[in-house]
Amino acid sequence: MTASRTDLANARAQAHEWPLWEVFVRPKAGLDHKHCGSLHAADSKMALQLAREVYTRRQEGVSVWIVRSDQIVASDPADKAMLFDPMEDKVYRHPTFYELPPEVGHM
């Protein structure tokens, strides 16, 4: 994967491709911005404009974030087990772990 991403970066540089941006849209006030896709744009101003054209043609959002894809730091899928499996046996982090007398009611 690392090799193909390097190849991709090289191919882009050679081909004068516009950089890739990730698009996040807030569907309405009160909700989180959610990743909805990506697009190519020369700069941030153009990326915002295109995000509006490509991802909100039907009032899907009230706010858009864009970020250069190469600026995102992501966890490695190969580390998935190491990073996330240790939480599997920590059931005491969930409220349902505790059995309380019914008289206590909702707690």
Partner: peptide
């Protein structure tokens, strides 16, 4: 555009 973006995640550039 959605589909080209999906294709690019596989390591092939838009220009290719």
């Amino acid at each position: 555009l959605y589909l080209y973006a999906a294709g690019e995640t596989l390591g092939t550039s838009r220009d290719q």
